[in-house]
């Protein structure tokens, strides 16, 4: 028996919004530790890794490890039927071929349930090596989303260049070129507004705008985003989900031909 409850459906809606543009379907691996999802986008350029810890749920029970393959388009249709404040419970029997989403209104007067067919997906789990990154940048998630959106007007690629002075995002194309520099903040009233840079070695890497923009769909989950970079390895874009877990996106850099 698997049962996981969140007191506000809005969190699950935001999680789904953060992955459904990159992935058509994905396997949710459930264990007593929580829910894990790892999947590559169709083009195998990026990888999404989602962790929702069991202690972050308002109720969590998982008697036997369970892998639930879900069509994210179908899941999205179902979650649209929940109000943001509804309690949401996911339930499945052991070895079931369906999962049930139950929504309950705050006043307990409306209860809906939606049963969704599960899919058998070929899972290809990749081992992600522990890496000491040359540069780790933390910045407001909204700022990162804005930069990705603005720069994608100028080119298909963004060059991220990080030194101890700051981080520079650049794009160029037919229109011309654009550069956005962010310095490390000296003092801020609110921690979520800070830009911080931990640098061992400067890096300059090129990434596809399209994927960076897709990652920023996770912005509503977190005030801050963390970018981890080293030469010639994938960028990690991490959004922490308060009290629940995190979503990490790995993006292969573009390389000189």
């Amino acid at each position: 028996m698997f049962e996981a409850r969140l007191n506000a459906a809005t969190t699950l809606k935001k999680v789904l919004d953060a992955i459904k543009d990159l992935l058509n379907e994905a396997t949710f691996d459930c264990s007593d530790a929580g829910i894990q999802l790892q999947a590559m986008d169709n083009s195998h350029v990026s990888l999404v890794s989602l962790t929702l810890r069991s202690d972050g749920f308002d109720k969590f029970r998982c008697d036997r490890n369970l892998s639930m393959g879900m069509n994210l388009g179908s899941m999205s249709k179902i979650l649209k039927c929940a109000n943001n404040e509804d309690t949401v419970t996911m339930k499945a029997q052991d070895n079931a071929d369906t999962v049930t989403f139950m929504f309950e209104s705050q006043n307990h007067e409306k209860v809906s349930d939606y049963e969704m067919k599960l899919m058998n997906l070929d899972q290809e789990h990749l081992g992600i090596p522990e890496t000491d990154y040359s540069c780790v940048v933390r910045m407001p998630a909204m700022e990162f989303a804005r930069i990705c959106r603005d720069l994608s007007q100028f080119g298909e690629s963004v060059i991220i260049c990080c030194t101890k002075e700051g981080v520079k995002f650049s794009a160029s194309g037919d229109v011309g070129s654009a550069n956005i520099k962010l310095a490390q903040t000296s003092s801020v009233d609110k921690e979520e507004e800070a830009v911080t840079i931990e640098m061992q070695e400067p890096v300059s890497l090129t990434f596809a705008c399209r994927y960076l923009n897709a990652f920023t769909k996770a912005t509503p989950l977190s005030n801050q985003v963390q970018l981890s970079m080293s030469a010639d390895v994938p960028l990690v874009v991490e959004y922490r989900i308060p009290d629940l877990g995190h979503i990490r996106y790995y993006l292969a850099p573009k390389i000189e031909e």
């Binding site: 350029v45 789990h125 990749l126 292969a252 850099p253 573009k254 390389i255 031909e257």
Partner: peptide
């Protein structure tokens, strides 16, 4: 010119 690499070339299959 730059070309896009695959994420699979960086991570090992489990």
């Amino acid at each position: 010119a730059t070309k896009q690499g695959s994420i699979m070339s960086f991570f090992t299959k489990k």
